[in-house]
């Protein structure tokens, strides 16, 4: 039977962005944000799940279309093997490795003590996203960043 969860650690970024400031509503949402961040920076912590404390259930990933898509896409790019699309265990492992790295980046990026964490995260997301540079009017963003 395939593994239905993966272990991960919650660093200070989880504490700040989920517990205290509630920028993200749940740990799962922030975990996935970190995984996407780690992957986009091409940084991961190999086997970060080993010895980790908290459990993340596959059902939480599977229950949200976007998260399931991201999980499969990262796993495919890692392996270039279509079979990984149905391998939840390996997908969870890749997610945990990138999420661990993403959480470290988030902890550094958002460590400044200030009262505008929501603004910081928003600007960070817009800056980091290479998604639609073509469509984005640069002046719009630079004025606000």
């Amino acid at each position: 039977m395939a593994r239905d969860h993966i272990k991960y650690d919650r660093n200070v970024a989880y504490q700040r962005l989920v517990d205290e400031e509630e920028v993200f509503s749940t740990y799962v949402e922030f975990f996935m944000f970190c995984a996407a961040l780690g992957y986009s920076r091409d940084e991961k912590v190999p086997q970060a799940y080993k010895g980790a404390e908290h459990k993340l259930l596959w059902s939480h990933i599977e229950g949200t279309e976007l998260f399931e898509t991201v999980s499969k896409c990262i796993a495919y790019q890692e392996t270039e093997d279509p079979d990984v699309l149905d391998d939840q265990e390996r997908q969870l492992e890749f997610l945990a490795e990138y999420a661990a790295s993403g959480a470290e980046i988030a902890a550094e990026e958002f460590e400044t003590i200030g009262d505008d964490l929501v603004g910081m995260v928003t600007r960070f997301v817009l800056e980091e996203s290479p998604g639609s540079e073509a469509e984005r009017s640069e002046s719009d963003v630079s004025n606000l960043l």
């Binding site: 944000f33 896409c73 290479p130």
Partner: peptide, 12 residues
Amino acid sequence: LTKGGTLALALP
């Protein structure tokens, strides 16, 4: 941000 943050970073 709670879901969109992930979408933004994972779009590529």
